[in-house]
Computed example of a mutant assay.
Amino acid sequence: MDPSYFTQVGKSLVSTLLADIGVQVIGWSISTFLQTEKFYDLAGSISFILCTFVSLYKPWEENTIWADSRSMTTLLRSIHPRQIIASGTTVVWAVYLGSFLFSRALKHGDKRFDKIKKVPGRFLVYWVVQGIWVALTALPVYISNSIPASVHPDLGLQDYIGIVLWGSGFAFEVIANYQKQKWRKEIGRDYKRSFISSGLWSLSRHPNYFGECLLWFGSYLFCSSAFYAALESPNLIMSHWMSRLAVFSPMFVTILITRVSGIPLLERENDRRLKDVVAYWKYKKATSMFVPTLPRQNVE
């Protein structure tokens, strides 16, 4: 077998992947027994949080907190600022999204699972897909956390740009979701014949998804600074194929949202629900689908 699979990062990623699989199996088992979809998104967020912490576990380091838990100084010495930022932002995002989606699931359920939640085999497919999503989306974070703190370079311009992008994306996602929640509460029963076109939703038909993609590009940017240092290290810390796979992470999120499960499903649902609403079609023609831009004028 290729020795690159036995690098320090490779061994750490195996543990991270097992944690991800474990959460999905447990979540699927409980949800299948109860025939409910309400824990699906919550389990996804728990997976992100657990995998983030598992990826910090480096048993080969003598001074790691896991080997010597006598003081907070030991903890700080074993984690680089980049790892703290990468882990902290991932956990903050996971807690926010998990609580938001879980609350929504409790109130409204999820129509995607109406038929399949009673068919264990088909239901399992969705949990497998979620496991892949968790593994690939935050892969740059897991890899960065798996690299010894001593190998990480100091924070630089690339890291700060990444932090700004992440913060901007997270703000976009949170504000857009808040605006839509507020609109839906105000519109009440007229929801099925109405649509939101104010605030960030006047700049993009899916500003929350734009923010989601932007923050993961930012996350990759400040995590990847450590990849170059690890690849140049004389020790076998990580292999080139891992760094190449990490590049795919933000691209995977963007393709998934814009081409597969996010925007296409909502666009079809809105087109069906609002097919007789002239104002909706004018809004759709004048407003960017994804990247926020000023609305086009004089659209008929």
Rank of each mutant, 00 (worst) to 15 (best):
I49V: 12
T52C: 12
T52R: 04
T52V: 11
S55W: 02
S55N: 01
L56E: 05
K58E: 03
W60Y: 13
W60C: 07
E62I: 08
E62H: 05
T64R: 05
I65N: 04
I65F: 15
W66P: 05
W66A: 10
A67F: 13
D68A: 11
S69N: 15
S69F: 14
R70V: 05
S71C: 07
T73P: 02
T74W: 00
T74H: 03
L76T: 10
R77H: 13
S78N: 11
S78G: 10
I79V: 15
I79S: 03
H80I: 10
P81A: 13
P81W: 06
P81T: 05
R82H: 06
Q83V: 08
Q83E: 09
A86F: 11
A86G: 09
T90I: 05
V91P: 06
V92W: 12
V92G: 06
V92Q: 02
V92S: 08
V95G: 07
Y96P: 00
L97H: 02
L97R: 03
G98S: 07
L101P: 09
F102D: 04
S103Q: 12
R104W: 01
A105Y: 04
K107S: 09
K107P: 01
K107N: 08
K111N: 12
K111F: 12
K111W: 11
R112Q: 03
F113I: 10
D114E: 12
D114V: 11
D114M: 06
K115V: 14
I116L: 06
K117I: 09
K117M: 10
P120D: 06
G121K: 00
G121D: 00
R122W: 04
R122A: 11
R122K: 08
R122P: 00
R122H: 03
V125I: 14
W127D: 00
W127H: 05
V129D: 00
V129K: 00
V129Q: 02
Q130D: 07
G131I: 01
G131A: 03
G131S: 03
I132V: 11
V134G: 01
V134L: 02
L136K: 00
T137H: 08
T137L: 15
A138I: 09
L139V: 08
V141A: 11
V141R: 06
V141N: 10
Y142E: 11
Y142V: 04
Y142F: 14
I143H: 05
I143F: 01
S144K: 01
I147A: 07
I147W: 07
P148L: 01
P148A: 01
P148D: 02
A149I: 08
H152I: 07
L155E: 01
L155M: 14
G156M: 06
G156W: 08
L157Y: 03
Q158F: 13
Q158R: 09
D159N: 10
D159W: 02
D159L: 03
D159M: 01
Y160F: 12
I161G: 05
I161L: 12
V164G: 06
L165C: 09
L165Y: 02
W166N: 01
S168A: 14
G169L: 13
F170Q: 11
A171M: 13
A171Q: 09
V174W: 10
V174G: 11
Y178L: 12
Y178Q: 13
K180S: 13
K180N: 14
K182R: 15
R184N: 14
R184D: 08
K185A: 15
